[in-house]
Amino acid sequence: MLRLCCRPLERCFARRTRDGLLWHVDLKPHATGDFSVAVVQANKSLEDQAQVCTTPFATYIGVYDGHGGPEASRFINSHLFPYLNRFALEQGGLSEEVIRKAFNATEEDFVQLVMKAWLSQPQIAAVGSCCLVGAITDEILYVANLGDSRAVLGRRVADGRAVVAERLSNDHNVAEEEVRKELLQQHPDDSHIVVHTQGVWRIKGIIQVSRSIGDVYLKKPEFCRDPVFRQFVSPVPLKRPVMSAEPSIRVKKLGLHDSFLIFASDGLWEQLSDQDAVEIVFKNPRPGIAKRLVRAALSEAARKREMRYEDLRRIEKGVRRHFHDDITVVVVFLDRHRGGDSPLSGGASAVVCNTPADIFSLTSGKPMFPSMV
């Protein structure tokens, strides 16, 4: 029988810290190791979501960093993993094709939601989310990405006394010269496809990420021409879509020295380098390690503003966004020797939904995916 913990996150398995906007899961098991999760809110509405789920096919990790509102990240949270599991079942296992199909189906479903809702909620056409997913199966790691959340591998050096970072995802952000060149090649007749404004590069002067789920008005130019929509969003003259939902996918065989993975929204990477992050994980105890990474990022954000962390944590949500972004971190340890004895072996699943109003559930049998929309 499936069982669901129906209490608020912080009363279920996650804990709230003295910083009332920071929640965390110290350490929980997945199929072949442990994982730790932490999130700190900066925006008025928390736009980040995260999940960890073990199914018969794979252990899935997801980090979804929304923008323009929480609707797209919450939609992904309730739709993407079920599609991954369904398509893996239909095709006899996980593959790049399965992952692309799941991303495409999630995007199509969200577009359909927007098409039905936008007349009463025009702003939903301008809501989107970055989407970072990892899947571990039979010593193979898949990393699929839209946007600028990032996956980083921590690998022990041969003597086991140090660790090196390996980035496993591409940042689809026009701050990267490669991304700007790609857009310019795709839009040779649009000299304003990328614009440098207020110190940063943006697509059409609007958005920094070039790939996402949602952001329908930047993928379907007809929205920008509609008078109703233009009352709520500044009109943008588009000849063709300027954003994509096509994920970049990397496939990697895990080795004996591959120790752990960090999946995090860009709020973490704005403050910490890849190497700094893996060294924090390597040098500290496992319990609460995701929370430690978040606090290190917050301390760095405070240092940049010449203030103390203690002062930063007293700032309320909304105002806090002027100092740092929402930050979500999932640390996944790779203890492959535990595979047969894992408390989640045999088809059990763990799902983490990391907003304060959401639920952390531990289920056995068929995976359970809480509805978010």
Rank of each mutant, 00 (worst) to 15 (best):
P370Y: 07
P29F: 07
N173G: 06
L184R: 15
F87W: 03
I327D: 02
E222I: 13
R286V: 09
V163S: 00
I136V: 15
L312C: 03
A158W: 08
G92T: 07
P287F: 07
I193R: 06
P8T: 03
C353Q: 13
G62V: 14
F232V: 13
V195T: 12
A245K: 02
S345R: 09
R161C: 09
F13N: 06
V319P: 00
P227V: 06
L9H: 02
S248P: 03
P367M: 05
I203P: 10
V127S: 06
E107S: 09
L94Q: 06
K291T: 00
P235F: 07
D276A: 14
D138I: 04
D258V: 08
G93T: 09
F282P: 03
D190T: 01
E176C: 13
V164N: 06
Y83E: 15
F229I: 04
L256E: 12
V278H: 06
C224I: 11
L254N: 08
R167L: 05
E279H: 13
K204N: 00
N284W: 04
E279F: 12
G69H: 10
V281H: 07
K116P: 05
P122Y: 02
L298G: 00
A302C: 00
P343T: 07
A14S: 00
G267I: 01
V127R: 14
V332I: 05
H257D: 11
R286T: 04
P287T: 07
C130S: 11
P356Q: 14
F260W: 02
G255M: 13
D109R: 10
E96H: 02
H257A: 15
G66C: 02
V52L: 11
P8G: 09
R338E: 08
W201F: 15
A105C: 04
A348G: 11
L293H: 04
N43T: 12
P367I: 10
C353F: 01
G365C: 09
R225E: 15
A158H: 08
E96G: 13
P356N: 13
Y309T: 02
D171F: 00
K291E: 07
R230E: 05
D65A: 03
F260G: 05
D215Y: 10
S210F: 03
V63W: 12
V133C: 13
E182Y: 09
R321W: 02
D335W: 10
V216C: 11
E178G: 14
E176M: 15
D311W: 03
E306N: 07
D226S: 14
V331E: 00
P188Q: 03
L9C: 11
A102M: 04
R295G: 01
S345G: 06
V242P: 01
T17R: 13
W269P: 09
I213W: 05
I61Y: 05
Y309I: 11
N104P: 00
G66T: 08
K44A: 10
A357Q: 07
V111W: 08
S345M: 04
L4N: 14
R336L: 02
R292E: 10
R7C: 12
L4K: 15
K181M: 04
R305G: 00
T55L: 06
D189H: 13
V330L: 12
Y64I: 08
R230Y: 11
P235L: 05
V236R: 01
L334N: 04
A102K: 10
V329S: 04
K101Q: 14
Y60L: 13
P285L: 06
R320T: 10
F81A: 14
K220G: 00
A297H: 03
L238S: 11
F75L: 11
N85C: 07
L27P: 01
S371L: 13
V352K: 01
